[in-house]
Simulated assay, not measured.
Amino acid sequence: MKETMRCVVIPEPHKFEVREVPVPELQNEDEVLIQMKSAGVCGSDHHIYHGLNPCSTYPRIPGHENAGVIAKVGANVKNVKVGDHVIVDLIHTCGTCYQCKIGRKNVCEHVSVRGSGADGGWREYFTAPASEVYKIDDSVDWKDAALVEPYAIGAHCTARARIVPDDTVFILGTGTIGSIILQTCKAKGCKTVICCDIDDASLERAKAYGADYVINSKTEDVLLRISEITEGHGVTVAFDSACFPGSLTMCMQPGILCNAGRMVPMGFSTAKEEITQAMINQRELDVIGSRMSCYQFEPTIERMEKKAFNTEGIATMFIPFSQIEKVFYYMDHPCAESKKMVILFDE
């Protein structure tokens, strides 16, 4: 094994550096060393680079959608061995706070998130507690392995929303997460899923993933179309995966979300919105927060191994780690092909 490696550091917003640093050593016998093979580029990575993520600190090595190979194990490690393909959890938790004890470790009182509040996986090697890595069969292509974390988000937020087959679902935004929520809702048996976006190509992709109806909010009246589709009842569940200022208020308005409906915002926009107590209580709406995922990695990996997901077109651009500057170029100059980038580490 080589003694040094390349890593990517964001020292402050709008700047990045590629540094040559020592390969990290295990800090204790419960840790493993992971050689990175693929890493997804998330919208939150864009926000970290541009200084828009309220949860991030600097300097920071980004990357929370991490897949790799075990290169070294501590003496106490039993769950994985050298050579195993693994997915790395993005959260490190205390295990003792109220949230951890009730099964909500993703919002642990002391949660540390790789790639945001702690260093992530945009480097050739890094260490992690063995308890935070999960084996994945080596039949799964690295391009797909990098997508386990966003698919785990889809599993988590739909569980938080209490999705059942009788639900009529509205998804605002058909990017990566919106498309994954769509696939997850259909896998859970939802007969009616309505997708809304301003991009016709994204809406066509949503049709391929099983959307029953699509609405282009640039050219169509969203309220009118939902009224037509639902015969005036509105939807029972709305997911806001567009997450622009005002998008939450839009989804919650009468005519879109029905009385007793469930609203699931997916973003971290800090912009104030015109939401009142009356908007929630007059119709007894549930506004359900959803952050990352909780205990969803292993079931998601199992489904990925069974090829239960349609990953075709979820990732739209693959960039070698040796050309990492392209990732930041496309963060500053986005195009249709760069909607979802995956970094592939050099052999």
Rank of each mutant, 00 (worst) to 15 (best):
S112L: 10
T311G: 08
E337V: 03
I229H: 05
H110M: 15
T276L: 03
N79C: 05
S44P: 10
F268M: 15
G232F: 01
E25W: 11
L90V: 08
H92Y: 14
K340C: 07
K207F: 13
T4S: 09
S293E: 15
A260N: 13
Y134S: 00
N310F: 08
C251T: 09
P334I: 12
K78C: 15
Y330R: 04
A146L: 12
M331C: 11
F345A: 06
A208Y: 11
T174R: 07
Y330E: 06
I91H: 02
R104S: 10
E25N: 14
I102E: 15
F297Q: 03
V8W: 00
T96Q: 14
R225L: 09
Y125W: 08
S247T: 09
E231H: 12
V82H: 09
V8E: 02
S179H: 00
L257A: 07
R205S: 05
A208T: 13
E273W: 09
E17K: 07
L33T: 04
H64C: 14
S338G: 05
R262M: 09
V80S: 02
Y134C: 04
V237K: 00
E31L: 05
K218N: 03
A159C: 11
V164D: 06
A39F: 02
H233S: 14
G210M: 03
V140F: 00
F297N: 06
V86S: 03
D286T: 12
Y49K: 02
I181P: 00
